[in-house]
Amino acid sequence: MSFKRLWAMFHARNIEFFRDWSALGWNFFFPFLIVAGFGMVFGGNDYTEYKVGVFPSQYEIIHSERTDLPLRFAETRYIRFIGFKSYENGIEKLKHHKIDFLVKAGSPSHEYWVSDSSPKGYIIEKIFKSSLLPDIKNIAEKKEIKGNEIRYIDWLFPGILAMNMMFSALWGVGYVVVRYRKMGVLKRLNATPLTAFEYLSSQVLSRIFILLFTLGVVWFGCDLVFHFKVAGSYFDLFIIFFTGGICLSAYGLVIAARGFSEEFTSGVVNFISWPMMFLSEVWFSLEGSPHWIKLIAKLFPLTHMLSAARKVMNDGATLSDVSPELAVLIFMTLLSIVAGAALFSWNK
């Protein structure tokens, strides 16, 4: 082994990387965005681990002096109190694991609701009861959750499927097309009778086939173990994932339209996919987050696809019930296809 040749290649690769300002910038800028994003979503120093719903309340986010709850419980650290106007609003969030505990403000018997399948709810219940001691008159009254209780795994599963589709669509369309352009494959295809529309359409259709095939395999395999409950129609779920898959693939076309650097394209894909994954409620609910964070989340197709899928799977909704989400996905798809086709270049 020649140390001189090794050093020459090492030096050349470093020069190549540092001359690529786009790749260099992403390596510094992207981690900062992730840290800043988590800080904004979770409130920086005011990070809250537990979410307690309080009704009735005219405030969305309420402070301890407004809760009309036992003082010791209201002043407990690391609990965020989220106000709901009615019992119906609060219980829906509780059943969908968007809050951990629900309590009625000003109730003499301290009525509360908690999901027996929620570990966080169990902890909050213990804290709530202990805050009433030693006054023997303060006895908390646990109320039964009406309707079918939704397991956390049933709430999480659509998010895992959608996240997998997102990464597969953005990397499988956006990154691959850019790599083909850099390797000169697109330039050679441009010399054939193949049009840009035909090429882009084939990429999207191929990716949709792969997305739905892998989704079916993963669903079948996981269902054998966890026995997921689907309250709605499997056909409706198929339509939702199909529409969402097309939308995500169309996003990939926009990324692929002009990109030439694989490193820069990788940064763009991460810039889109990671915020989408965290703000679209794949892993956790945004309940209690600032209102402007929720508005940003609505700009992502994953948010609308997950909202529709969970309504069908967990609540038994129909396509007409989730028509607003489907309309947004279709609009985003058309917008992305038009932008991708207008910007697409075979060579640059």
Rank of each mutant, 00 (worst) to 15 (best):
F3W: 09
K4Y: 08
M9L: 13
F10T: 07
H11A: 13
W21E: 08
S22L: 11
F30G: 03
P31M: 11
P31C: 06
M40P: 00
G44A: 14
G44S: 13
F55H: 07
Y59N: 07
E65Q: 15
R72C: 02
F73I: 08
T76M: 10
R77F: 09
F81S: 03
G83K: 04
P108H: 10
V114N: 06
S115E: 12
S117I: 13
P119W: 10
K120E: 15
F128K: 05
K129A: 05
L132P: 04
D135G: 06
I136M: 11
I145Q: 11
G147V: 11
I153N: 03
I153L: 13
D154Y: 10
F157S: 03
P158D: 09
L161R: 03
L161Q: 09
M165F: 11
G172W: 06
G174V: 04
Y175V: 06
Y175E: 05
L189W: 11
E198L: 05
S206D: 08
R207T: 09
T214F: 13
V217A: 12
F220H: 05
L224S: 07
K229P: 00
F238R: 09
G245N: 03
L253W: 00
I255M: 07
A256I: 03
A256F: 05
F260L: 12
E262H: 04
F264E: 15
V269H: 04
M276W: 08
L279N: 00
P290I: 07
H291Q: 10
L295E: 10
I296E: 00
K298A: 10
L299R: 02
L302D: 03
T303E: 05
V312E: 01
M313Y: 07
P324Q: 04
L326N: 07
I330L: 15
S336P: 07
I337H: 01
S345P: 02
K348S: 14
